[in-house]
Computed example of a mutant assay.
Amino acid sequence: MKRHQVDKRYSVSGLFILEIDATDMRDARETAERILVNSGIDGKVIQIEEVQKE
């Protein structure tokens, strides 16, 4: 596969929702923050809601 030459750098921002399996809201927040950091995303956790499993 041929790679494209990268000439420019872009900052891309958006809103994202992560569904996390966790024991409580604190665990969900910490897990989400860890996922963001490990993915190289400078993000902030704003809201946590419990969702029903399908």
Results as ranks from 00 to 15, higher is better:
1 M>G: 12
1 M>E: 10
1 M>Y: 07
1 M>T: 07
1 M>Q: 07
2 K>Y: 05
2 K>S: 05
2 K>I: 03
2 K>M: 07
3 R>G: 15
3 R>F: 10
3 R>N: 09
3 R>A: 14
4 H>K: 13
4 H>S: 13
5 Q>Y: 11
5 Q>P: 11
5 Q>L: 11
5 Q>K: 14
6 V>C: 07
6 V>G: 13
6 V>R: 14
7 D>W: 11
9 R>N: 14
9 R>L: 06
9 R>F: 11
10 Y>T: 09
10 Y>I: 15
10 Y>L: 10
11 S>H: 05
11 S>D: 09
11 S>G: 03
11 S>T: 08
11 S>L: 12
11 S>I: 01
11 S>Q: 09
12 V>S: 04
13 S>P: 02
13 S>Y: 06
14 G>M: 02
14 G>A: 01
15 L>M: 03
15 L>F: 02
15 L>S: 05
15 L>A: 06
16 F>I: 00
17 I>F: 00
17 I>M: 00
17 I>L: 01
17 I>P: 00
18 L>N: 03
18 L>V: 06
19 E>I: 00
19 E>W: 00
19 E>N: 01
20 I>L: 05
20 I>D: 05
21 D>N: 01
21 D>V: 11
21 D>S: 09
22 A>C: 14
22 A>I: 02
23 T>V: 06
23 T>Y: 13
23 T>I: 12
23 T>L: 14
24 D>A: 13
24 D>K: 14
25 M>N: 10
25 M>Q: 13
25 M>G: 04
25 M>C: 06
26 R>P: 05
26 R>Q: 05
27 D>Y: 12
27 D>Q: 10
27 D>M: 13
28 A>E: 05
28 A>H: 04
29 R>K: 15
29 R>L: 14
29 R>D: 11
30 E>V: 08
30 E>F: 12
30 E>A: 15
30 E>T: 15
30 E>N: 12
31 T>R: 14
31 T>P: 04
31 T>D: 05
31 T>F: 02
31 T>S: 13
32 A>D: 06
32 A>E: 01
32 A>G: 06
33 E>S: 05
33 E>A: 03
34 R>S: 12
34 R>C: 08
34 R>E: 09
35 I>G: 01
35 I>Y: 01
35 I>S: 03
35 I>W: 04
36 L>Q: 10
36 L>K: 02
37 V>D: 15
37 V>R: 13
37 V>Q: 14
37 V>W: 08
37 V>G: 12
38 N>R: 10
39 S>A: 15
39 S>K: 15
39 S>M: 12
40 G>Y: 03
40 G>Q: 08
41 I>Q: 09
42 D>I: 04
42 D>S: 10
42 D>K: 07
42 D>P: 06
42 D>M: 09
42 D>G: 03
43 G>A: 07
43 G>L: 00
43 G>Y: 02
44 K>L: 09
45 V>G: 01
45 V>I: 07
45 V>K: 03
45 V>L: 05
45 V>D: 03
45 V>T: 05
45 V>E: 02
46 I>Y: 12
46 I>P: 07
46 I>R: 06
46 I>H: 09
47 Q>I: 04
47 Q>F: 06
48 I>D: 01
48 I>G: 01
48 I>P: 01
49 E>T: 10
49 E>N: 15
50 E>P: 05
50 E>Y: 04
50 E>R: 10
51 V>L: 03
51 V>D: 00
51 V>A: 07
51 V>Q: 03
51 V>N: 02
51 V>S: 02
52 Q>E: 12
52 Q>G: 11
53 K>A: 13
53 K>P: 14
54 E>W: 14
